[in-house]
Amino acid sequence: MTTVQEAGAAVAERQPRVLVFSTNGISDPGIDLAGSLHMHYSPEVVVVSLPCTSAVRPDWVLFALEQGFDGVFIASDGDECAYLSDCARRSARILARAQDLLAEHGIDDRRLRMAAICSVCAESFARQVREFTAALATLAAA
């Protein structure tokens, strides 16, 4: 298995790899819209869509970073979740648990970001993953 540190050395030659967790009803349509509008971001950004942000397991975040992703971006439902009125609160708890898990494993918590992406938030998504990609590149160079 490639450790995060080893992956960091290789990152200089390629763009940072970002795993996005989106949601079928809210943020994934927003990400689709970014594509429909031909808003560019790094092709190293890939998306796994789930029904709801509250279904993201913190250990998946750790697993992705240990396996070789440079960053994980949770494109959350925010207040728009069709299932749960308190989805934002639950998502925040999942984020905190994931951060604790990363700390336990000595992984920089700047590799994990979360932001609410609504079903028409195409521009916001494209901008945020571009910024995240740039921040991860800086992290790798440091």
Binding site: I31, H38, V47
Partner: peptide
């Protein structure tokens, strides 16, 4: 999802 989240997003980078 190969269209909205890949080909349409990366029209600027066919190899990527």
């Amino acid at each position: 999802n190969l269209r909205e989240q890949c080909s349409w997003t990366h029209t600027d980078d066919p190899a990527g």
